[in-house]
């Protein structure tokens, strides 16, 4: 079992990681942030991606799929962004956000590692 700081540190050890954050999508605010670059403000990314997560959740609800998001992948020219909502009972309303460099990362491995981090995260 890992706490918030350890989980975010673990997320940064994933190959190609640029930054990671734990975000509350009811408010868009971050509970923790690691990495990022002077150009990339992860709190801005968190607030913006909150709208992405909410939109997708609403769509699933409207389509009456009766399912939930396991993870979301957004592919940019030079980056991968992975969003993973927390499933534990104390992680309701939160998601993990991971930014990866496309050239330095292994997407399948990163996704697997992020799942492990999410499963072990205890708040």
């Amino acid at each position: 079992m890992a706490n918030l700081d350890t989980a975010l540190k673990d997320a940064m050890t994933i190959d190609g990681a640029i930054g990671a954050a734990l975000v509350d999508y009811t408010s868009g605010m971050t509970l923790g942030v690691v990495g990022g670059t002077p150009e990339i403000d992860l709190t801005v990314a968190a607030a913006g991606n909150t709208d992405v997560v909410r939109a997708k959740m609403r769509t699933i609800e409207m389509l009456k799929l009766n399912d939930e998001i396991e993870d979301m992948l957004i592919t940019l020219g030079g980056q991968y962004h992975i969003i993973r909502p927390l499933t534990g009972s104390n992680g309701k309303g939160l998601f993990l956000y991971l930014m990866l460099s496309k050239t330095r990362s292994n997407l399948a491995l990163a996704r697997h590692q992020l799942r492990t981090i999410e499963e072990q995260l205890e708040l």
């Binding site: 408010s27 868009g28 605010m29 971050t30 709190t43 801005v44 968190a46 607030a47 913006g48 909150t50 709208d51 909410r54």
Partner: peptide, 10 residues
């Protein structure tokens, strides 16, 4: 209630 507070604060 559903407003994105972080976005508002930015």
């Amino acid at each position: 209630d559903a407003i994105n507070v972080a976005r508002l604060h930015l």
